[in-house]
Design a protein around this nucleic acid. Sequence first.
DNA 1: CCAGTACCGTACCGTACGGTACGCTCGATA
DNA 2: TATCGAGCGTACCGTACGGTACGGTACTGG
Lengths: 198, 198
Amino acid sequence: MRQQAVLDAVLALMVEGGEQLTMDAVARRASCSKETLYKWYGDRDGLLTATVQWQASRVHAGRETVQALDGTTLREHLQDFAVSWLTVITSRTSVALNRIAVAHAGSRKSNLGGIVLANGRFAIGERVKPVLEAGRAAGLLAFADSEAAFRTFFGLVGRDIQIRLLLGEALDLDADEIRRDAGRAVDQFLALYGQANA
Amino acid sequence: MRQQAVLDAVLALMVEGGEQLTMDAVARRASCSKETLYKWYGDRDGLLTATVQWQASRVHAGRETVQALDGTTLREHLQDFAVSWLTVITSRTSVALNRIAVAHAGSRKSNLGGIVLANGRFAIGERVKPVLEAGRAAGLLAFADSEAAFRTFFGLVGRDIQIRLLLGEALDLDADEIRRDAGRAVDQFLALYGQANA
DNA sequence: CCAGTACCGTACCGTACGGTACGCTCGATA
DNA sequence: TATCGAGCGTACCGTACGGTACGGTACTGG
């Protein structure tokens, strides 16, 4: 689809960052005319919104159903979530996109921040909570409020990483560090919420 | 000092957010001429940098020395840190300032992000770590790496709050909620790192 | 072969904003 | 009182950028 190539061009420009994200730059990069951009997306905000949604549509793949859990598979699920979340938030694309959305949230109009939140933080919450609840049903976890439990998990996984990246720190984690970080976070989470028979 | 009144005007504009943060707006708000702004701060970046530093200079009050700790005072110290950190990051000023700094970090030049990090995340880290180490010396805590322990504490306290605020969610915590949140975070931290004789 | 459509490239317009210039006032010093 | 510097208000300049207009081209359906 041609239009998605345009959105990929926007993403590429965001990530490179060197160039200003102007409509001219996008048109040049995507080899299309500005008039077409305005025809397809209305205005600059529309283009940004479409880009954010386009990226979001690629991130959360399948919502796998959760069946019976034992301690091992619970741990694996949590580990997977932690790894994929860390991988996302440390990616240059996510950092660039979040920067745009944060900047936009300051001068309201359109709602990039809301979209990013809905497809990031909240989407993963909705995917993790069923797993936590299944863990509780299996007697592996103990908590009253799955939202609160998830937020603790979120904090243990992300810690200060996202804000440091957003504020411009270099800080690149390789796959190994991410795996170790995720493992530590899962261990800590299980230490806090795990039941004896885990 | 007149110059600080100018910086307060900048902060006020940032917080209100409605108006664009232009040099004209600052001059109008501070009842001074643009020429004076340029004389004092060089350019727009200089003004923003000075504003960030001015705000930073007010935040971290005294670095109290840590003497002998028992379980109760350790808990109190951690609780204080958690409360003050949550209070800071949920303040409208902090949110506005971090938005500016994040946006700036995208299109490098000057280093607002670095300044904010140094006076926020890292400053509190340097204040908390001695307390953690004193707790370890007193046999109340067990950890190998105080930086890692602090980062866990940071994650347990902040969780998803800062990113949600930066992305524009309303989410206002009152003093009571902050106190409860801080208490939960400290409990969890002590559950992970506390020693039996605490 | 013709009409219509979709789109590219480029030129153009209006405006907002960073930065500069300048005249005026006012308080301090001699 | 004369001089001087600091700084206010305003007007101004240049440019970058969002948004529009338009001519030219290639493809599609009849």
